[in-house]
Design a protein around this nucleic acid. Structure first.
Lengths: 154, 154
DNA sequence: CGGCAATAGTTTCAGTTGTTACTATATACG
DNA sequence: CGTATATAGTAACAACTGAAACTATTGCCG
């Protein structure tokens, strides 16, 4: 008897990856073209805008981005005058990042575009469906975190 | 009035990307460790197993992977003796890829692991929920394809 | 205090991925 | 037919990302 064939298209981790990459590429392309921002940079802008003043380490935890990625994005944004780095009074090794007024201005332009894209992509989804999708994604994350922890313990 | 703050955590494309990357990394790590297969290679194995004999170009279309990525994965798999490349009778530029018996054997080991991971990650999901999730992902893909086409036309 | 492990952030380096250029073949059209 | 354009696949190159090494500072514990 031949090995039964897995239909890759029906394999959920694969489907999730394909869909996510399609969405990411679409949005990343638009941001790059419109604002010269790469994905990590845009994420930093959003997180800093929410937080007012936040360390790079905290950004890494919040966004699951590597500290190297965060560092590079922070340097790029600071070079462009979009964020400023003030010494962290509690810890001389770290800086607190906040938006400059130029950064605020960019953020004010970028954010509506982001929401517009989201709206367009999910235009055919009812609010309750979107809610269900978010909850499902959160549940998946929770399980994966558990499996990661399990793997670490051996 | 200050700019209203986007909660990045509530932004669906972001959530999708985080969740998908967590799942991908988990599975990719396992495959790398267990079988020495990277993600593109594993995808090729799966697609070739389904198709029996298929050109690289067709694999690229089916998996949305770049032809360069497909080419590299195919070379790696051929070097390991997992696939064989036979001339395509209809087109001398391309090969038809198929699994060798070693490839079949590997596939027979890999596939149950894949399904097991899927099962574990979605253990708390009812079949109807999984079905809804798949449908939602398919709908998202459809919309994004439309937006891509729109962007190309200008 | 003083030394030593841990942490924030940067730099360096290696691995992966995609864009561009190239080769060989195929197809369209004069 | 034969020239021009498109396509399958590979190779060469550049960009991005993450791991490991490094620097500066912190905090623990003798």
């Amino acid at each position: 008897m031949p090995t039964p064939r897995l239909k890759l298209d029906a394999f959920l981790p694969y489907r999730l990856s394909i869909t996510s990459n399609m969405v990411s590429e679409l949005i990343a392309g638009a941001y790059e073209a419109l604002f010269g921002l790469r994905v990590p940079e845009w994420r930093l802008v959003a997180v800093i805008a929410e937080a007012e003043a936040i360390s790079q380490q905290a950004i890494g935890r919040r966004t699951r981005m590597d500290k190297v990625t965060v560092s590079r994005a922070a340097i790029a944004l600071a070079d462009r005058g979009l964020i400023k780095r003030t010494p962290n009074p509690g810890d001389a090794r770290s800086h607190l990042l906040s938006l400059t007024s130029a950064g605020e201005q960019l953020y004010a332009e970028v954010m509506p575009k982001a929401l517009e894209y989201e709206k367009r992509i999910f235009a055919s989804f009812k609010p309750a469906e979107i809610e269900r999708l978010k909850i499902m994604l959160a549940r998946i994350e929770e399980v994966v975190e558990g499996l990661e922890a399990e793997a670490e313990r051996g």
